[in-house]
Simulated assay, not measured.
Amino acid sequence: MTTDERTGATSSSWKVLRETVILLVVAVGLAVIVKTFFVQAFYIPSGSMEPGLVINDRILVEKPSYWTGSPQRGDIIVFKDPGDWLDQGEDAGPTSPVASTLAKIGLYPSGGHLVKRVIGVAGDKVVCCDKDGRISVNGTPLAEDSFIDPQQDCDGPMAGCSGWSATVPKGKLFVMGDNRDESADSSFHLCTADDGPDCNKNDAYVSTDLVVGKVVALVWPLSHAHIIHRPEVFDDVAEPAKQD
């Protein structure tokens, strides 16, 4: 091989390497943009959303829906911890260096967040329960048996069935897991008579500022991958009464 041929081969190799690096940088940059503004992957760390979402399911969360609006009743949302809602296992993200790096740029499901269903929005009064054991929102009972883990006595067992209510403050959400007796959700964090005067009533609510986005699809495992829709039962909920 002549000197010119060797020079040409070296130049070609550097060109391929340079183009590969550029493509990789562009791909990572696009992934970061997509994760930040559009879609992000998460995994389910606990059984609190069974039967629809089970441990280690991979889900996709979209963000544009809440750019100009707020979560609706019935949406499944991902949000940051409002304050000591997560246990150590649920707070853990990917453990391997490769998975952790991919999670940071949105190419691998990340941890450290919660997944719950919105039951009440600002102004709503959530009450447990009617004579049939159903949770009511603004006086409208919710027929939830098609998507929650059916309960024996009522649909709000973490706070008991003896009767409780919560009026959602402005800028907040009342959320619950679909696995009602295994979800440390808003009902679990409600103040009761046993908690004493030091209990912070705001601990039961999630600020809309903490919401990452809406769960729109279960993508792994493929055996039960599907698009996630908002249950129609929430369409019939009455609007909250106007405050004087």
Rank of each mutant, 00 (worst) to 15 (best):
T36A: 14
I76T: 13
R18Q: 10
G120H: 11
S165F: 07
S165W: 04
T101L: 14
I105R: 09
L102G: 02
A31V: 05
K172W: 02
F174A: 11
N179L: 08
D153A: 10
D57V: 03
L114F: 11
I76V: 15
G83C: 07
N179V: 10
L53M: 13
T95Y: 00
E62Q: 13
G47F: 03
T20W: 11
D198W: 07
L30K: 00
V98P: 05
S146D: 15
D181H: 08
S96Y: 02
V98T: 11
G139H: 12
V233K: 08
T192S: 15
L102F: 14
D4T: 09
A166E: 07
S12V: 01
D195L: 10
E239L: 14
G111N: 02
D244P: 15
D194T: 11
L218V: 08
D57N: 06
F188C: 06
D57R: 05
E239P: 02
D194I: 05
L114E: 06
V233N: 06
M176H: 01
P197S: 12
E90Q: 15
G83W: 06
L222C: 00
V78I: 15
I44S: 03
I22Y: 10
G139P: 09
P94T: 07
W164I: 04
W220C: 03
G213A: 08
P64G: 01
N179S: 11
G47S: 14
G213F: 12
C161T: 00
M176Q: 13
G47C: 01
I22H: 06
